[in-house]
Design a protein around this nucleic acid. Structure first.
Lengths: 225, 225
DNA sequence: TTATGTTTCAAACATATGTTTGATAATGAG
DNA sequence: CTCATTATCAAACATATGTTTGAAACATAA
């Protein structure tokens, strides 16, 4: 089936190139020539470049969010009613990430970098797309985090959740570069799962750090913000 | 002096637009029309678009790295020879960030977002530029962090340093959006310094989290990485 | 004032981009 | 086989981009 072949060749190459250079910096001509398909193929099969970008994400995120929902079901069933510890919530997330059979030919790290790009480089349409498509899964996750850290003030948890997110997204989005450095400096190969396993204690400790009240100083008019 | 006026009008608008849309997505025509200068002005005063991007960073980072170096001198003098606690190192960094008189008309958060973009969206030239120009300051900082956490295995500290970096860069790069959400949800205004003060306990706790040894499982050939 | 160097400006240039087109080839059901 | 649908292809299209140009305006010092 030449049609499916073309479609997934485009998806694979686009994924790699987007991750390497970013969305705007990757042209359809680069994608199609590397994928050895005709230039018009992208518009024929996907409609537009924007749609191609979304398709690249959907191919990964659709099965992921399904798996993640199932895993969360399992977790809630396991703790039926009792409070779920934060570490368990995080482990569930990362286990889902790690054990998910990658629908792409490229590895997890390529996709992680893509996710990072989507979050920072997100022009309006991507952010909206991710929100609309996968907002409910994300909401369910944050709800679990809230219940797993009910002692934390809401504002504090809000910010710490994003600190946590930042550690993950940032690290993962530079993962290939960091793995190279780590291997050169410490002579040991690092796998995605290793990094993730290092990440969990870090963010767990961060989430349960003592809350220091913010001094509501009134003399803060000096800089614009 | 019409010349300086043109130059800094370009820098100001470029900074804002880059932060909003990214580098590739912001055209010279958009910049020059918003800044009410002629299109050719950018190439006349800066030479090229790349050079403009670097100038935007230099205007902020040059005074910053100078201040930061001074503050590190001060810190080392204060603890003359004794081990400097990690929190003190971090406080020094954040104090420098916060108290620095902003050379730009735009606030700190705009620049933070820029930094985040530079790190993730970095095409080769930016990464190289930042490394060459400010690599030594960064190295001095990481050295201080190492000495302030000498009990940590090198590999572990390497990754945790990037987790830390990630929290900061990621949060700061989305700061404006996050502040809006926080204000809507919790009805309290947040300043950059508040976020930073919340960040420090988080990353400090993360850095001194217990080290769990990574199980060197050999059956990890299932996914490509 | 005159002459020199600097800055601004509108226009053109060269190129790269996403998209569309119409023809040609491949495919598959009746 | 036949024919209608689907997929591929080279070429063209329309537009947006960074950069260059040469003339005009401006400033400054002799």
């Amino acid at each position: 089936m030449a049609q499916l072949d073309t479609v997934s060749r485009i998806l694979d190459t686009a994924e790699t190139l987007f991750a390497e250079k970013g969305f705007a910096e990757t042209s359809l001509r680069t994608i199609t020539s590397k994928a050895k398909v005709n230039l018009a193929a992208v518009n024929y099969h996907f409609g537009s470049k924007k749609a191609l970008i979304q398709a690249v994400f959907a191919r990964y995120l659709d099965p992921f969010s399904e798996s993640f929902n199932l895993e969360m079901d399992r977790l809630e069933a396991e703790y039926s009613g009792q409070e779920i510890p934060l570490e368990a919530v995080l482990q569930t997330l990362t286990q889902t990430v790690i054990t998910m059979p990658s629908p792409t030919r490229n590895g997890l790290s390529v996709f992680m970098r893509l996710l990072g790009l989507a979050y920072t480089q997100a022009q309006g349409h991507m952010r909206r797309y991710l929100q609309e498509q996968y907002g409910t899964v994300f909401f369910r996750f944050t709800t679990m985090v809230r219940e797993a850290s009910s002692d934390l003030p809401d504002v504090e948890r809000f910010w710490r959740l994003h600190f946590m997110l930042g550690s993950a997204v940032f690290t993962m989005s530079s993962l290939d570069a960091l793995k190279d450095i780590a291997e050169k400096d410490f002579g040991e190969q690092t796998r995605v799962r290793d990094v993730v396993q290092r990440l969990i204690p870090f963010v767990s400790a961060g989430m349960s750090a003592p809350v220091t009240t913010i001094a509501s100083t009134a003399n803060a008019a000096s800089e614009k913000m």
